[in-house]
Computed example of a mutant assay.
Amino acid sequence: MMYTVSILCCFSGFFMLYNTSHKAKLSVKGAIEKWLQQHPAIAKSVGILLVIASFLILAAKDGTGVGIFTATLLLMTAGCLTIAIAPLYYLRLKHIAALSAGIFLLEFLFS
């Protein structure tokens, strides 16, 4: 269960930070994206806290060295996927919720 929470924290945090960028072509279709773009200070603060929480969860779960290494890989993955998929306007809350539920179920069943 901790890995799912960590993955959600990392992806959500990076998505929040991505939506506060001035350089990226941002979506204005979703209500969440609009809110994040209209309130960049709050979005940046919460995004950074979520990424740090992801690092701390993984460091507590796997140990300091392996946890930080895994969190760094997870952050790079979140960055690549967000930058590749977000301009296609394919990231929606229902997709993220369905994927998270599937990951949680798999983690719960096999751990």
Rank of each mutant, 00 (worst) to 15 (best):
V46Y: 01
L58G: 01
D62I: 02
A43Y: 03
W35E: 07
H39E: 09
P40K: 02
D62H: 13
G47C: 05
Q37D: 00
L58T: 01
A31C: 06
K44G: 11
K44L: 04
Q37I: 06
G47I: 10
I42R: 14
V51S: 00
V66I: 11
K29A: 14
V28H: 14
G30Q: 06
G30D: 08
S54Y: 03
S54A: 12
L50A: 06
K44Q: 15
L56H: 05
L58C: 08
K29N: 14
L50E: 02
I48M: 14
I48C: 11
G63Q: 04
V46K: 02
I42S: 12
L50G: 02
I57K: 10
S27P: 07
K61T: 07
A41M: 04
S45T: 11
V28A: 07
L49H: 07
I52Y: 08
L50M: 10
E33G: 07
S54R: 01
S45G: 12
S45R: 03
I32G: 03
L56T: 05
A43I: 00
I57P: 14
L58W: 05
L36A: 09
A41D: 07
L36Y: 01
F55P: 01
P40W: 00
I57F: 08
A31E: 01
V46I: 15
S27D: 13
K29T: 05
H39M: 06
D62M: 07
S45C: 12
A53I: 03
Q38C: 09
H39S: 12
H39I: 05
V66D: 08
G65Y: 13
L36W: 01
A43G: 06
V28E: 13
V66A: 13
I57M: 11
P40E: 02
L49M: 15
E33P: 03
Q37V: 13
I52T: 11
L50N: 02
A59N: 09
S45M: 04
G65Q: 12
Q37P: 10
G65C: 05
P40H: 04
G63K: 08
G65W: 14
A43F: 04
G30N: 07
Q38S: 10
A59R: 01
E33Q: 14
V66F: 08
A31S: 11
A60D: 15
Q37Y: 02
L49I: 09
F55T: 06
S45D: 04
K44H: 10
I32F: 09
I48R: 14
K44N: 15
L49D: 07
L58R: 08
G30W: 06
K61I: 03
K61Y: 14
F55C: 09
Q38P: 00
A59S: 13
I32R: 04
K34C: 09
A60S: 11
I52G: 09
S54T: 04
S45A: 14
S54P: 14
L36C: 05
